[in-house]
Simulated assay, not measured.
Amino acid sequence: MKLSRKATLTTSILLAGGLALTGCSSPSAPADGGTTTTQEAPAKGGELTKENFAERIEKAQLNAGSAHMTMQLGDSVDGALEADIVLDKDPKKIQMQMSMDVSGMTSDIRLVDGKMFMNMGELSQNKFLDMSTMPGGAGDISAMIDQVNPGSQVGGFSAALTDFVADPKGPEIDGVKTTQLTLTLDTRKLFEAQAQTQEGVDIDTLVSTLGETIVYDMFIGSDDLPRRIVMPNAGGVGTGTVEYSKWGEPVKVEAPAADELADASALMG
């Protein structure tokens, strides 16, 4: 019931470089499920720099409170993911509903109240599995929460940075002018900053597969919110892209009802 190795690697890399961006903890209060509107950048926000970009992007995401995200998994993986996400400093308040169509398998994944549920169509009898009851499930849940929580890796992202280039004349995306950030990250330091990695993917494997460094191109709007992240082909995994939209729009994720849950032990045989 697992994704292919390339799909798992690509998803880990994209998530690690996406909403997990952190610098240092923001003093701003988190939004409640996107009930606030996206904050416009201050008139004198100034240029994004190596010293301030992570903190500013983290703060902007928490102020927005929610987003829609689309991930293309790259040339070597057939499929895409779409997700609506609620962001919060408190990991227990992180929410996400993700629709995933990878290699012909369609899944509905929900992260709510610290639990993760997955419906894999016929493979799960068209019902949801409570992943906390599956072998290794707790680790997968912790990894997912870490990867989408802007406050979970304080200082980790900046610590992995080995080179930083900012181009204020980035492309216009969905009518928004962007600054293009080209970031070179130490692969080992990036993933060591995470409390957990997805089951079956260890840091040594990531480094040997992807190389010592990973390069991300990030396109940031004048409000300090990401509009696009592109990861060039690394280690044969393939180019991956994350598109962001609907920042600050209300998002509500509901856990499956009792009659929508499958007996995980029975399915394990």
Rank of each mutant, 00 (worst) to 15 (best):
L48W: 01
P226D: 03
G114C: 10
M134T: 11
V237K: 03
I141M: 09
V242P: 00
T38D: 13
K115A: 08
V176N: 09
I13F: 02
Q39S: 13
D223L: 02
D130S: 12
S26G: 06
L161A: 04
G65T: 13
D167C: 07
E40H: 05
F53A: 15
D140S: 10
E55I: 02
C24T: 14
T182P: 03
N52Y: 12
Q39N: 11
V242G: 02
T10H: 13
T8G: 15
G18I: 01
P256Q: 10
A160K: 06
A83P: 07
M218K: 10
D90M: 05
G156K: 14
F128R: 08
L123N: 12
Y244E: 01
L123I: 12
S66R: 03
V176W: 00
A83Q: 14
N52M: 15
T133M: 07
P171I: 11
T10C: 15
K169W: 04
V77N: 08
A143Y: 05
R56Q: 02
A143S: 06
A64C: 05
G248L: 04
L185R: 04
G34I: 10
I214L: 15
D101A: 15
F117G: 08
S158C: 06
W247N: 07
Y216S: 05
T213K: 15
S103M: 12
K93N: 12
A54Q: 05
Q198G: 01
D84M: 03
K92W: 10
E199G: 13
M118R: 08
K246G: 08
K50Y: 00
I214P: 06
A43T: 11
G156L: 08
A234C: 09
S66P: 04
Q61N: 05
A54G: 14
T239M: 09
T162E: 14
Q198Y: 03
G238F: 08
G155T: 13
Q72H: 13
E212D: 11
A257H: 08
L185E: 07
E192W: 00
T197F: 00
V112H: 03
P30C: 12
F157E: 07
K89N: 03
P30E: 09
F191D: 10
F157R: 04
G121M: 06
R228W: 03
V207H: 14
E172M: 15
I13V: 14
I109N: 07
M71N: 11
D167F: 10
E243V: 12
E51I: 07
I145G: 01
E47Y: 05
R188T: 10
E192S: 01
V253I: 15
T184N: 03
G238V: 10
T197S: 12
V165W: 00
L261R: 05
D88G: 09
D223K: 02
S4W: 09
T205C: 07
V253Q: 12
M144Q: 14
E199L: 15
F164K: 01
D32Q: 05
E40Q: 12
T133D: 07
G156E: 06
G238L: 11
T182M: 02
P42M: 11
M131C: 00
F219G: 04
A234L: 07
A64L: 04
V253F: 10
S208D: 11
N119C: 08
A16W: 04
H68M: 08
P91S: 04
L73M: 15
Q196W: 02
L15Q: 15
G269C: 07
A67V: 02
P30Q: 06
A266H: 07
G235T: 13
